[in-house]
């Protein structure tokens, strides 16, 4: 965590440079809300709905599991961090925003979901969970470095808003990277998405962004 600010700034700027439109400078802005511009609790829930119970599940599960020697496992640093994160959502929500300008945004077919989607930045940012082979093309820039975004968040989650060339609507989607966990007798993967509502069963569900003008 010591080099988190450097990792975050380097990754964000590199991604923005790779997405430069050309003809104008790329600008990247980093801003912290601080407590003064935090989101009040009642409004923050719009962005946390469905996440808090999974944070709670991760927080309570780890220490409850017995170790191999039968002793109760200790809270480790990571578990403590998640437990604190689960409490954060009851408070005004402070945030960090990274904005870029003069860039293409997260381009690519939002419905593509192959094992590899060269050049599809939307896929690379939200759907690529395997290890990327560097140097394939621009999508390679969405390799392991992108995990700095959830890493930088105390609740291991971020939202991304993008407007792509030629489109009037913006797309909003989020990604949370926790740990595998159990809730109500069901097992869940480490990752979840903030996405448009969809009545499909989990086995059929394909996360899609929220569209908004």
């Amino acid at each position: 965590a010591a080099d988190m600010p450097e990792r975050l700034v380097r990754e964000a700027i590199q991604n923005s440079m790779d997405a430069a439109l050309g003809g104008e400078p790329v600008r990247v802005r980093f801003a912290f809300s601080g407590i003064d511009h935090s989101v009040p609790t009642h409004r923050a829930m719009d962005y946390l709905n469905g996440l808090t119970e999974h944070l709670d599940a991760v927080a309570v599960e780890q220490p409850a599991r017995p170790r191999d020697d039968g002793a109760a496992s200790q809270f480790n640093d990571e578990t403590q961090a998640v437990y604190r994160a689960a409490r954060l959502v009851d408070q005004p929500l402070e945030w960090l925003v990274v904005e870029d300008f003069g860039t293409r945004g997260l381009t690519g077919n939002i419905k593509a979901n192959g094992a590899n989607e060269p050049g599809n930045n939307f896929w690379g940012f939200f759907r690529q969970f395997g290890i990327s082979t560097k140097g394939e093309d621009a999508a390679g820039s969405w390799g392991l470095g992108k995990w700095v975004f959830p890493d930088a968040s105390q609740i291991n989650a971020f939202l991304a808003l993008t407007r792509r060339p030629g489109e009037t609507e913006s797309l909003l989607m989020g990604l949370a990277i926790l740990k595998t966990h159990e809730r109500d007798g069901r097992r869940y993967p480490a990752y979840g998405h903030y996405a448009a509502s969809d009545p499909a069963a989990d086995s059929e569900w394909f996360q899609l962004p929220v569209r908004s003008s």
Partner: peptide, 18 residues
């Protein structure tokens, strides 16, 4: 309303990642 969602793991996924 948009919201966070985690898809329940399938038996095959659990076997791969217990």
């Amino acid at each position: 309303t948009p919201h966070w969602r985690f898809a329940e793991m399938t038996p095959a996924q659990i076997a791969e990642n217990p």
